[in-house]
Nucleic acid binder design. Sequence first.
DNA 1: CTTATAATTGAAAATGATTTTCAATATCAT
DNA 2: ATGATATTGAAAATCATTTTCAATTATAAG
Lengths: 138, 138
Amino acid sequence: MATKSWLTQLQDNGYRLTTARRAVVEIIAASQRALTPVEVYDAARDQYPTLGLVTVYRTLEKLEELGLIQRVHRPQGCQAFTTAGQGHQHLLLCSKCGRATLFDGDDLDQFIQSVARKTGYRINEHWFQLFGLCENCK
Amino acid sequence: MATKSWLTQLQDNGYRLTTARRAVVEIIAASQRALTPVEVYDAARDQYPTLGLVTVYRTLEKLEELGLIQRVHRPQGCQAFTTAGQGHQHLLLCSKCGRATLFDGDDLDQFIQSVARKTGYRINEHWFQLFGLCENCK
DNA sequence: CTTATAATTGAAAATGATTTTCAATATCAT
DNA sequence: ATGATATTGAAAATCATTTTCAATTATAAG
C-alpha cells in the first residue's frame, strides 16, 4: 500500500495528517486509473462525507509537489492524476478502461541524444506517453 | 508561407474564407512559438481589430481538425497551439524563448514495440515531447 | 452584377475548472 | 490540557471555454 508511505512523506515535509488528507490519499494511492479532482472528491466522500472539493485540489497539489503523483495528459483533457513514475518511468494508458501502467524509458536516452545533436538544443526534460489497449481490453 | 496552403485547405473542406479566419491563420502560421487562444487574439487584432475571441477558438478548432495545428502540452498549461508535425514528427520546445521545433520520431518504433511486448498492451498512439534550450538560448 | 441562402460573426450569457478569501476548526508540539 | 498555527469547507472570484442568438457576410446561382 502506497497510502502509508505517502502519508508519512506528507508528515515528514511538515504537513499535518488530517482526515481529509487521509481520505484523498487513500483513493488515489489505491486507484489503477488516473482520476480527476472531481472523481477523487466523489470517491473520497464515501469515507469522509464532509470533504470539500477545494481540499482535494490542495492535497493533489501537495502530492504532486512531493513527486508522489503526476498529471496525466490525454486527448479528452489534462486534469487527471495518477501515481508518479520513479526516475525514467513513463505512462502507458488504456484508452478503454483508463488503466495507467508505468514502463521504463532508459532506452530513450540515445534517441534523445541524437535529437539534441541534430537540432542543436540542450535537452533537459522529456515527456513521453503511450496510449493503447491493455491486456484485458484488447 | 503556410498561410496560403492553410486557407486553401479550409476552403477545400467547405469552410468559407473570411477576414477573421485570414487574420487568425496568418498569426499562427507565421509564429515560431506555440500560442494560446488569447495570444492569437491579441496578435490578430492588430490586423483585424473587430475580431472576437470566440472566432479564434472556432478557427483553432477547425485548424486542429484538419491536422494543420496541434495542441502543445506544457508544465504551465495545455492551451497553446503550434503548427502540427507531419506523420511521425514530434515537438521540441525551448523553455526560455518558447520556440517550437519539430523532429523526426521514426526511430521510436522499435522502442514502442518492446514496451508493447513487455506490458501486453496493444499500443495505438504515442505522445512525445522534449523540452530544453534552443541554440540561441542555451 | 444582383440576390438568396446558409455559414459565420461577435456580444453576452452559461458552463466548467481552478483559486482565493475568510472565519471556524483540528492537529500537534509543549 | 493548551495554545500556536495549519487546515478546513463554503462562498465568491477568476480564468478558460462553450453555447446561444440576432446581425452580418461569403459564395453559389441566376
